[in-house]
Nucleic acid binder design. Structure first.
Lengths: 213, 213
DNA sequence: CCAAAACTACCATGAATATGGTAGAAAAAA
DNA sequence: TTTTTTCTACCATATTCATGGTAGTTTTGG
């Protein structure tokens, strides 16, 4: 869709100025890439996009005003032709999946070298889904953890879970939530069932692992 | 101890090549700073130091072969005159303290801008303890969490803690550790006492917060 | 070698938890 | 407006846990 000979225009969004500097140093016109803009937050970049398009957008996941995933979706809405690449430290398979679901054209980890970086961007321009070497590994072997999705909890269940983690007993929770002890017991039971554990200690551990707390 | 007019020699250790590029772009001879070397791991840098000294060393905390704290100590042993600055994303007060205890001359967060960065390095050269703006904040208002130190656990206690978090019951643990149930109960009791909690759920949460699991 | 930790074990008792159900009312989704 | 969740409540029972102790035996560090 794009000619190889054209100069590629690229933008970077990252809350670490030093990364922005680094990207500008790596992508020089000699390599056929121009850095059209660098931004430390998502909204600045979205503003920029309304005036000027870029062919490649490099997005960090952790940004001050919104997540990179969210930003990715908004960018693709605004400019469907822009190739969005994650450029981040997050190694979680789930995050990679989220980016892809929101239209990202690839996922790069910051610990890769400049050569690989250039190579990936060139691949991405040609319309290929692009992963840096380590990401390929991550995608290739999903852990059992990755495969079991986090069960949806009801509002009450989340409250009870929170209180359980704080060490509250059933009578205390019943008091605090103004319900009967028996009700609290039911929620607790359902929580343990959903997270497939057999007692409160394991429940708290599982919940923390799923970032439910 | 060092003249202002001299060109400052600086080295960077960071596992993200892009950060190394960025630092090289920011510190130009025009600013009176030469980047004498960049490294992606601690050992490479230590090797380099035996041949050539630098006035400032920027160290990330997360490195492939050793922690930045450890590296800091080794650098100061080898070259006491080198000013070691942390240059990292870690915002934990405890990490800052550890770096200082190991001889660091300052602590900088990667989210600061190039100007502040230059300013800090210049300050550091003059022998001042240097913090980037955000770090000053962090040091100024320690949370209650920061103040209570993690209680030392015995070997057995750690084992029991681990098993409790896995959801094991006292009889199961007794079995697994080949001790009496009564003994397990005692360890559990001591654990809860040390972490100042009143039941297993809160114990697991506290342990995870203190990174004991 | 001696002292201090750490590990082990014991016990009694009351409180809390886990587990199997059932089931009506309320709220949210279709 | 149905239908489906969610929230609520109840019950019995077996386990498990928490808490207060005491105290002998190993390790470990000085």
């Amino acid at each position: 869709m794009l000619q190889d000979k054209e100069v590629i225009t690229l933008a970077v969004v990252d809350d670490h100025p030093m990364i922005l500097e680094g990207v500008q140093r790596v992508f020089q016109p000699e390599q056929g890439v121009t850095v059209a803009g660098t931004f430390t937050n998502g909204n600045d970049f979205l503003g920029f996009l309304q005036q000027q398009q870029v062919q490649v957008a490099l997005l960090d996941i952790t940004l001050p005003d919104m997540s990179g995933v969210e930003l990715c979706r908004k960018v693709k809405q605004l400019c469907p032709d822009t190739c969005v690449l994650a450029f981040t430290n997050h190694q979680e398979r789930a995050v990679v999946m989220q980016m892809l679901q929101n239209g990202a054209g690839g996922y790069l980890l910051k610990n890769m070298g400049p050569e690989e970086f250039l190579q990936c961007v060139r691949e991405a321009i040609q319309g290929q889904i692009t992963f840096s070497a380590e990401v390929k590994q991550i995608m290739a072997r999903p852990t059992p953890q990755d495969l079991k999705s986090i069960p949806p909890l009801t509002r009450r269940e989340k409250q009870v879970l929170q209180l359980v983690a704080e060490g509250k007993t059933n009578p205390q929770m019943a008091e605090e939530l103004s319900v009967s002890i028996l009700t609290v017991e039911t929620h607790r039971k359902n929580l343990m069932q959903k997270l497939e554990v057999k007692n409160a200690a394991a429940l708290v551990k599982a919940a923390l692992e799923c970032r439910l707390l």
